[in-house]
Design a protein around this nucleic acid. Structure first.
Lengths: 183, 183
DNA sequence: AAATGCATGTAACGCGTTACATGATTTT
DNA sequence: AAAATCATGTAACGCGTTACATGCATTT
């Protein structure tokens, strides 16, 4: 077995999606936006080079596929070696993620903030939390009408979002009150 | 006034910290770890080049300072232009952050996961949530003994963390139960 | 005729990490 | 004598975004 190059989560997002069924680069982008948009993103500028790399590793194959309007279309499919790599990816424990939260950075340095700036950021933040929550409620409603082997996993992910968005909206509301009380 | 180059949050973490008081690169690193560690990080490999850039922009100055053991030491101080830049930074509304959460990616692709992998990741996640919560409880206790113009802001930030960590530990516990019920 | 959607890719760039290189002082 | 702490910086690299370049088919 060849030496494993260190892996990259983008490659596994791709691998996972085309493991479901063969897809084009364009499909993958759309799918990531629609289904993973609350917690993941991919740009074409990264996606296509990664597809190239996965092909070089023989984890996926490319073949011309039927047009769906517009230009020529390629469909990527996973190989048995690709399935193996996907399994291997799961078998490595997740490295802790180091988040960088610029809102909290601003709050920590809040004594240098001009009047109103933090409240403006908190209000915008709350709006995003509420919009996210509303969007996930929709997702949950449509999941409740679906069935299949994946639905349970997807419900778990959606509930992460609803938990997060509602807790943080509530936090931001408390923060607004504290800041207003400060003057 | 010269054209503003697009800015970078690392520069403002630095600017904010040396606005509190003059510090060395080493000080900044330590301070970020101790006070911002739950939601921010900086590496020397990024920090020193950014200090150089901030100097080139005349937002900070460098001067040799007293050793505190070991090698020669430089202290950076903010300039009036630097204070202005810091204020300007606050005045630009925060861009929404696009998080990438690999745990959720794994869960979404959970049907390809080998048995036990997701439960192992959730258990590790919960442990990190609980450790984070315990650490922030400490922070809150020490903040409750402090006073000053910053404490209110810092309490808000700490409460973000406690809210987040406890909500997500609870979420992960529910997720564990769901997955176990699935077999 | 114009806009939108489908579709593929590259180039340039900035961010940030890891590894490396160096070295004095203080503590164990 | 060794380890930890204080301290400064560069080099190489990978990740990911934005902007660019192209172009057909369908809808408005």
């Amino acid at each position: 077995m060849a030496a494993r190059k260190p892996v990259n989560p983008t490659e596994f997002a791709i691998l996972g999606l085309i493991a479901e069924e063969p897809r084009s680069g364009y499909d993958i982008k759309r799918e990531v936006e629609e289904r993973f948009g609350h917690f993941w993103s991919e740009s074409y500028g990264h996606l296509y080079p990664m597809l190239k790399r996965l092909r070089a590793r023989r984890w996926i194959t490319r073949r011309p596929a039927a047009r769906r309007g517009g230009r020529a279309r390629n469909e990527y499919a996973i190989t048995p070696a690709g399935r193996g790599a996907l399994t291997t990816w799961f078998s490595v424990p997740l490295a802790p993620q180091r988040p960088r939260n610029e809102l909290l950075l601003r709050l920590m340095l809040g004594r240098f903030a001009p009047s109103g700036a933090l409240l403006r950021d908190l209000a915008a933040y709350r709006e995003r939390m509420r919009a996210g929550l509303a969007s996930l409620r929709e997702v949950e409603r449509s999941l409740s009408r679906e069935s299949g082997p994946d639905v349970a996993h997807w419900v778990i992910v959606a509930s992460f979002g609803t938990t997060l968005y509602s807790s943080l909206d509530a936090w931001a509301e408390r923060a607004e009150r504290t800041l207003r009380a400060l003057g």
